[in-house]
Design a protein around this nucleic acid. Structure first.
Lengths: 170, 170
DNA sequence: CTTGGAAAGTCAACAAGACTGACATAAAAT
DNA sequence: ATTTTATGTCAGTCTTGTTGACTTTCCAAG
């Protein structure tokens, strides 16, 4: 159904950027780029017997210190059981501290310890370096386009909570 | 080590697009966008008891019919053992055909069967629709930037074999 | 005050899909 | 003819996702 190689180029050459072939190239580029995007942190993580899931948890705890498990859950988009296993090892290893909520004792508030901050910095530095190189090579206008397309690709629900794109010209 | 929050904004406001904060936003956008990127095919795949790995295999077999297992391996960047499990189920289920090479009998050449083509179309249609919507919303210039940054993010090795970005202005 | 339900988090068991190691077969090289 | 290389397969383990069952805490209705 609708597989004739021209299903989206009916608008003529002004829409050349969304022919099926252009779309396919974008899809493949996304796949390959994501691999590069995660390659450096992944390499580092194996030295600590951690995985990508630990990186994500650490990243967002650093970003929102004191966040509840539930909040982290909705950001990461996994089940609480899955996140729990990761958090448990990070807490056992002393990278994350979990404090029982004062107002609501059901909640656990998460913080990075000093060791946690150190590992987060090592992982983020590696990932930022790759990102910075790509940004620098592509230039500011390409970066703006990159961010626009990425944001349009997110799930609408997430997008409403996220929307960090418009920053002032300051 | 170089963790002071301004490690890349020393060049002044002309380089605002690669401050650590901009980099972090890009990193998070990449993470969230990739989830959206795979969401629709993933949903479809559960109906067939397949996973993302099957999708990738089917995609690249469709793209390069008759490819050898080894070639597919280098594209997908996984071990042959991992790919083998996926290919075996696809062959058993009659979505992929594996023909022994005529010139070199060690090789297996892979093709999609009619059923394979059908599933590939269903998955690709879903993914292309999401991509098309994002492209349309962001516009042609943003798409060009998107592709530039993605390409710069790939591993250099892969990039040399891939490089599909320069197409004529026709 | 008690009770019953909702919410937050934990424990256990299972599945997908990566990985490494050991192995089989065909082709090529010596 | 024998060894080496290329290719593909089988078996077992690990990470990380899933669902289901459970505890603790909070809150609201009776």
């Amino acid at each position: 159904m609708a597989e004739n190689g021209m299903s989206s180029s009916v608008g003529g050459e002004a829409r050349l950027f969304l022919t099926d072939d252009q779309l396919r190239k974008g899809i493949e580029a996304m796949f390959f780029a994501y691999r590069g995007f995660t390659a450096d942190p992944d390499r580092i993580l194996t030295n600590y017997a951690y995985g990508r899931a630990h990186h994500r948890a650490i990243h967002f705890i650093k970003q929102a210190p004191g966040t509840s498990v539930n909040n982290l859950l909705s950001i990461l988009g996994v089940t609480k059981q899955s996140l729990n296993r990761v958090l448990r090892t990070l807490i056992e290893d002393g990278l994350v501290e979990s404090r029982v909520g004062t107002k609501d004792k059901r909640e656990r508030h998460l913080f990075l310890t000093d060791s946690g901050v150190t590992l987060e910095a090592e992982l983020s530095d590696a990932q930022r370096n790759r990102m910075r190189a790509a940004y620098r090579e592509a230039g500011p206008e390409a970066v703006a386009g990159f961010r626009q397309v990425l944001e349009a690709m997110m799930d609408p629900e997430l997008r409403r909570h996220y929307k960090p794109n418009k920053e002032g010209t300051s």
